[in-house]
Structures are given as C-alpha cells and as structure tokens.
Simulated scan of single mutants.
Amino acid sequence: MYGQNGQLKGYRIDGDTIIFSFDKRDYNRFSPDSYKLKQDFKDLDIESVVVSGEFNSWSKDKWYMSQVDENRFELKKSIDDFTDEFSWEFKFVVNNAYWAEPTSKDPNIAKAIKNGMRISGVYNLKMYTAYPNPNGNACFKLKGFENAKSVILAGSFNKWDENLFKMNKVEDGWELTLQMKPDVYEYRFIVDGQWMEDPDNISKIRNEFHEFNSVINIKEYTAFKLRGYTDAKKVILSGSFNNWNEHELVMEKKDYGWKYVLPLKGGKHHYKFIVDGQWITDPNNSVKEYDGEGNINSVCMVK
C-alpha cells in the first residue's frame, strides 16, 4: 500500500510535468512479446528505452527517453498530454523489442492482461495523477480511531481503490495530503475494512448503497488580468462562475492595468470584463466562444 512517504516506481510528478524515469538497476527480468520471461536483464545491451502504455496505444517507437547517465533514462511530458482518467498502465520497452518487467513488490503494479486474460507473473506499472504530496492541495483528516490498525482513503479520484492510499497515523487521528486536479470528488474512509463517510464534512451525497459519500471540491486560484485601461474608474470581472454578476468581482488596479484572483473548479469558464459599464472580451486571450445566445466570451480552462 502506498502511504504519504511511499515511492512509486517509474515516474514522478513535478508541478504540471510528468517525468518518466527508468533505471536499469531496478530490473532483473525482461520479456519479448511472447511473455516468456528471461533472466539476466543486467546483461542486455541497452540502445534505447521507450515509454509504452495505455496513453500512447502501447507504442514501442513513439515516446523515446533520453539517457541521463550510465543507468538512467528520463522523458518529460506535460500533464495536459493525458486525458482526465485517474490512472494509466505502462511499461518500459528496451531496444523497441523487450518489455522491462517490474516485480510484484513494486507499489504501483497491475497484473498484465492479454486478450482479456491475466498473464501469470507479468505486471505493468501504473501512473496516477492524484498522488500523496505533503505540500498538496487536499488534506484529508479523520479524527480519533487511535486503535485502528489501518485507515485507507478511497474515492472517485482513485477509482475507489481499497489499498492504494494508506493514511498516516498522527497525534489526533489519521491524515493524508494529496495533490489533485481541480474537480469535484466523492470519497470515504476504510477503517480496518469498514467503510465510512467523513464525520467532519457536512458536504455529502447519497450513494447506491443507501449510505453517504463525502464530497470535496478542489479549486485552483486563477488570476484574471486586464492590461491597459489605466484611466478606467472601475473594472468588473464577470463570468459563468458567478452567474454573470455585474457588481460582485471588482478588480484591483495595478501598474499594468487590472487584476482579480479567485478559486475556480476544474473545467471551462466563460468570462468578460466590464470597463466603466462597457462589456469587453479579454484582448490578451485569443480563445473565445459563442455562448449559444449570440454572445462571444473569452474562455478560461482550469485543469
């Protein structure tokens, strides 16, 4: 199980960048497509390493890694290159022919499946976009239950996995901090095998078992800037995020123009500025859309 201090193999996430990392010293087995396992991986003459997974249709010749030293290869990808799925299975392919086989002891593995059947002794690594990070944007806490042996955090952000996110025991209960994409998520705690809602979170929704899932809304602070218009007396930010209120979000005057920062949930947001009573789109944002009523609005995407 993966706690806050755990280490997932094969990748790390740095801000908006996913860094795939292959170290040949971590592997002792490889296999051709026949899945007949070979030994002595250390004796394989490595000429190239490719990241292959669900995100690139298991290609053996697209996502080439760069060699950083005698043993390690890396590849950096923007998190925007991936869909909104929570997890993806992947492997490293050596010399465009051999699959590096992780061990069943690795913290982020999944049994490989071919033609709908699990393959004995063969595993894929898994990559997650919600992951434990002590500096993350979502801290989950469960007070009490000091005598519990194990508390797991499960939710829509990890496909309700019953083992992945093991919470850490702290002085007054249990705690785990995650880094998550902005969105609305449902979750529950599993205390020694027993599922329960978060007793300290009043936001909840009934589930299919006639119980309740707790709800958390992860937002991202987003800065809206209007450059110029320094002679204006008042500028208002208005958009789909506040039902196009014409008075609520009064922007702050800066040397370059005007600014307003507010937390937004993930997804697409339409907006405009109201400059001394005149509605305008954002002149520094080329992304615009019709709203279905004949109006053109600027677009802000929060991911």
Score class of each variant (00 low, 15 high):
77 K>E: 10
227 R>P: 11
16 D>P: 09
49 V>S: 05
287 V>C: 10
110 A>S: 15
245 N>F: 02
186 E>T: 12
124 N>L: 06
302 V>C: 06
52 S>N: 02
177 T>L: 09
25 R>I: 03
193 G>M: 02
9 K>M: 13
149 K>L: 10
290 Y>W: 11
84 D>M: 13
258 W>Q: 04
227 R>G: 14
59 S>R: 07
85 E>N: 13
256 Y>L: 10
270 H>A: 04
249 L>K: 09
23 D>I: 00
212 F>G: 05
62 K>V: 10
253 K>R: 11
221 Y>V: 12
1 M>R: 13
211 E>V: 11
285 N>W: 02
123 Y>I: 08
124 N>D: 14
231 D>N: 12
211 E>G: 13
222 T>W: 05
239 G>K: 03
42 K>S: 14
129 T>Y: 13
181 K>M: 13
119 I>E: 14
33 D>F: 02
123 Y>W: 11
208 E>P: 08
7 Q>I: 14
239 G>L: 08
111 K>Y: 04
205 I>S: 15
212 F>P: 00
90 F>R: 12
147 N>G: 09
253 K>M: 02
24 K>I: 04
177 T>Q: 03
10 G>V: 00
297 N>M: 00
260 Y>G: 07
161 D>M: 03
238 S>V: 07
235 V>Q: 02
246 E>Q: 11
139 C>Q: 10
6 G>S: 13
115 N>H: 10
227 R>T: 12
57 S>E: 13
189 F>G: 08
151 V>T: 05
50 V>L: 04
200 D>V: 00
242 N>G: 03
39 Q>M: 14
36 K>I: 04
264 L>K: 05
180 M>D: 00
130 A>W: 01
262 L>A: 07
40 D>V: 01
171 E>R: 09
65 M>W: 02
108 N>S: 06
163 N>V: 12
243 N>C: 10
212 F>H: 11
278 Q>G: 08
256 Y>C: 08
